[in-house]
Design a protein around this nucleic acid. Structure first.
Lengths: 356, 356
DNA sequence: ATTAGCACTCAGAAAGAAAGAGTGCTAAGC
DNA sequence: GCTTAGCACTCTTTCTTTCTGAGTGCTAAT
């Protein structure tokens, strides 16, 4: 059953208003809108129809209407109008984007904090591997007699390190030898390509440092098999700024007990559609604790087989258009930053007028 | 004015009860305590005195008493009795302590999560340098033509890395040369010992890779000068589990707006006393937003010039004894783990009764 | 010095009353 | 036949009022 233009217009108006007020919207408020040419009575009739269709809900008889999850979904898929960032908003986004370029993980975490701040909602970031990971470089550095640090560089410019306590005494040259062997034989291989045979060969070539091989290899395999980087979730408290959680601290707590890091990294699996922006609206989340919670996700390109995801968590009544616009801006610029690698530069924009 | 034994006993009882019930404590409840040999009337008199002295407060005339900040302070300093961890508690702490040994930062963050979970309160961890940092090892790894990763190992087994976009074309051997030069001349020096002269010398020796030198050195100096590692703050939401914040989401939000990472790393500066455990009780926090919030901090040894701090954030009415006991257990075992380096092992403890 | 007894206070719960926003329906208008 | 004005009705919200009970502080007795 197709909606008439008028119905669409009304539904859109209801979502728009409800999103910003968090109060049920009455027919009068709609009728008062500048480009609404009908009386409140007509609108009441249409609202009754939309409720019938399951796109609106009524908290109680004498209240206005609020969008149902289906209503939000329709709004997102068809009705939502691009939100244009104001100059002020663009400017503060740009300022924020001046991240210090640093370790990858720290950057991701900083991006999360930024997004959370700019949207005033909890946000997360994850990096996900697109292609099979391979090791690019091994390094073994002795820190004290008996302990070394293993530095492992993977595709995607990911650097991992681990402090290893040595099972045997090893000298510097022996360590160098092992590193050379590892770099010669274990780089550019995916986890599957690292066979037992190969390991035997490496162990034989490793000389005195042979007992170290399994330690190094296990760590390497573990790293190679990791599909996701760390999940950086921040700004949880900002959920409390939303009226629906203001006096429902318990609910807010539940949300983040459910939406832990594991769940977040599995989110893409339950997505209804593909695309760079994705929405999980209220009950589309499987967990019942999240039935009033929505997530907006945006992908961005990191390059070298990695992909980043930024997500924003909020009440079902959230400003999808605005959040999408802001996330989009982030994604675009982050993609650019990461691809060009450092130095990180937000798009050139002389932050006043530019001279002729 | 010294307290009588009976007054001490009553004050201690009030804190103990209030801490666990979060309700004002009446004279009757105290009198009902097994080892309380006096009638409620007597206790009422003593309570009036204690109130006079500023150690107790009365939310309103017809309510019981609650400890004042000064009361808590006295309790902490003199009255608090060691909380004995139950076998169950020890066991779950031990289970929790089986951290996967991994990157330092990740471990610290995991410790924070753990402490937060075990105390059911927000927690943070920081690593602080005790002695001057020096670089231990440099590594330059080419990831793609035009970009390299700089891996820097510092004292304290801290590994930093940074993706560097090259200003000039450099070949592998040139990179190797630079790394060798850096390792030869820049290691084991504190930030102050790295002089302009020295840098000139390095630049001259660096050959084609000379333009890279300032990039590397700047990053190195930045790392060396960092007094604190990252602050890992987690479990903020758990503050909402506390009755005083249950219906005061706003207050909880304020707490963490104020208690940001910067403030946390400066906390030690405002401490009233020295020692491995430290308490910041309610209004002893300078920020007025934190006047109902306490922090318990515990130091632990990491070795190699580094020191860790675990902190727990809670309402002023928090179970100082229990938290202290748990933190102490963590600190002790973490200290042991970090010093021995990996593999991380919680103390051997046959998790039942030990045989004679 | 301690305690029983009692009048008094005051927050919080429960119950009732009033206000107001918004609906659905009916009947009139274009 | 679609649209709209009018109106009775519903139901939340808010404000009062009343009631209850825990707890105190004081006085007088032990």
């Amino acid at each position: 059953m197709e909606l008439t233009d008028r119905q669409k217009q009304i539904l859109r108006a209801i979502v728009d208003i409800y999103v910003s007020t968090a109060e049920p919207v009455g027919s009068k408020a709609i009728a008062a809108l500048p480009d609404m040419k009908f009386s409140s009575a007509t609108i009441r009739n249409e609202m009754a129809d939309l409720t019938q269709m399951g796109l609106l809900e009524q908290p109680h008889t004498s209240a206005g209407r609020i969008p149902s999850p289906a209503g939000y979904r329709l709004y997102i898929d068809e009705l939502m109008q691009d939100y244009r960032l104001s100059l002020d908003e663009t400017r503060s986004l740009n300022e924020a984007l001046e991240l210090k370029s640093q370790e990858f993980d720290k950057m991701m975490s900083q991006v999360g904090k930024l997004v959370s701040k700019m949207t005033n909602l909890p946000a997360y970031t994850v990096a996900t591997r697109q292609s099979e990971a391979v090791a690019r470089h091994f390094d073994l550095i002795m820190t004290a007699p008996g302990s070394i640090i293993l530095v492992l560089m993977l595709s995607g410019d990911v650097v991992k390190n681990k402090l290893v306590k040595l099972p045997v005494q090893v000298t510097e040259p022996e360590l160098k030898l092992l590193a050379a062997v590892l770099n010669a034989s274990l780089t550019d291989l995916t986890a599957e390509e690292i066979t037992g045979e190969l390991l035997d060969k490496i162990t034989r070539s490793a000389g005195a440092a042979a007992p170290l091989v399994p330690l190094v290899v296990d760590f390497t395999l573990e790293c190679l098999r990791q599909q996701h980087g760390d999940v950086h979730l921040t700004g949880q408290m900002r959920l409390l700024g939303q009226p629906e959680y203001r006096d429902a601290a318990e609910k807010a707590q539940e949300v983040f007990e459910t939406l832990d890091e594991e769940m977040i990294s599995n989110l893409p699996a339950v997505l209804p559609k593909e695309g760079p922006v994705q929405f999980l609206v209220g009950p589309e989340n499987v967990a019942k604790e999240l039935k009033d919670t929505s997530v907006v996700m945006m992908r961005f390109d990191i390059g070298d087989g990695m992909q980043g995801t930024i997500g924003v968590v909020g009440p079902t009544r959230m400003d999808y258009a605005k959040i999408t616009a802001k996330l989009g801006y982030f994604a675009e610029n982050l993609g650019r930053m990461f691809q060009k690698s450092n130095p990180a530069m937000p798009p050139a924009l002389s932050d006043g007028e530019s001279n002729p």
